[in-house]
């Protein structure tokens, strides 16, 4: 049987042996629970003294949990991943790892999996809170699973972006800056483009504005969650109607596209990271 990836093992042990990880996890859970408590209280207050929650209230609390979890993952994943390889450079251990028989793919996968595992730990720790909303009602198991998949796919993408920048920079702080700038660019600039482009560009884009917007926003997890709520209301969880060149066709639902796009770009970032770590070869310089 093949051994577990040594980089993954070392990263997990290294992280979980220091109190920093516990404090970070506790802080994130405190944030999520506080916000959900606030929403819960607000919902309760809006009942005008009638102490009866309905499905809509449970769904609102659930959505607040999902959005907060997504915000936390958006912060944790790139910050942790950005220090993975550049941190090795700072500790002056990078050369030693590179000179072992580990392949660049092993190093990149180990680093990615370690950060992803930490995000998974956080999302798993959210389960009791999610369970409460599930018991209140208004949320079914399918929606719960769907949101978990979207959150984890987002965590994977942001981890890969962090690892990619980590391979390109000498210090963790620089890598973190670039990774956060990339992700904030995706989160903030993309919606602006989605709103502006169809107005500026004439022709078929204007004809299929909604499709265009949905395609562009597939990389935006927060937009995906909003669009998915519409899909759940209309009971079209797996498929969606798209209009391209005036033709309406059925395609995968927005959240499925979002997950697929996240996985695709995660692969692209990982391949680029592996290429950065692969020693250049030549026939010998002249």
């Amino acid at each position: 049987m093949r051994d577990i990836n040594p980089v993954l093992l070392r990263e997990l042990r290294g992280r979980l042996r220091t109190p920093r990880s516990y404090w970070l996890l506790c802080g994130a859970l405190f944030l999520v629970s506080s916000i959900s408590l606030l929403i819960y209280s607000a919902e309760y207050a809006s009942m005008n003294g009638q102490p009866t929650f309905n499905g809509s209230s449970g769904h609102t609390v659930f959505l607040s949990l999902v959005v907060t979890a997504l915000v936390v993952v958006t912060a944790i994943a790139p910050i942790m991943a950005a220090g993975s390889i550049s941190g090795e450079r700072e500790r002056q251990t990078f050369d030693l790892i590179v000179l072992t028989q580990l392949r660049p793919i092993d190093i990149v996968l180990g680093k990615t999996a370690a950060t992803f595992a930490y995000c998974l730990l956080f999302v798993t720790a959210l389960t009791p809170f999610m369970a409460i909303t599930f018991l209140i009602g208004g949320v079914d198991v399918g929606e719960l699973a769907m949101m978990y998949i979207v959150i984890m796919s987002t965590a994977l993408l942001y981890t890969c972006i962090g690892v990619y920048w980590s391979t390109r920079t000498q210090t963790a702080i620089t890598a973190t800056g670039y990774a956060l700038a990339t992700i904030l660019g995706m989160l903030l600039v993309l919606p602006v483009l989605v709103l502006v482009l169809p107005e500026v560009l004439p022709g078929w884009i204007a004809d299929s504005t909604t499709t265009w917007r949905q395609l562009m926003l597939a990389i935006h997890p927060f937009a995906t969650i909003i669009f998915t709520q519409d899909a759940i209301r209309t009971s079209t969880v797996w498929t969606n109607q798209y209009t391209i060149f005036g033709v309406t066709i059925a395609g995968p639902a927005m959240w499925v596209m979002s997950v697929a796009v996240s996985w695709f770009w995660s692969c692209v970032c990982s391949i680029l990271s592996i290429r950065r770590l692969t020693p250049p070869t030549s026939k010998g310089a002249s």
Binding site: R13, G14, T18, E88, Q92, T93, D95, L99, Q101
Partner: peptide, 17 residues
């Protein structure tokens, strides 16, 4: 690389190992 053992001038450490 398989034929070489390298000892750099600095000793990089991993915490808690």
């Amino acid at each position: 690389r398989q034929r070489i053992g390298y000892m750099p001038d600095t000793f990089g450490v991993y915490e808690s190992m």
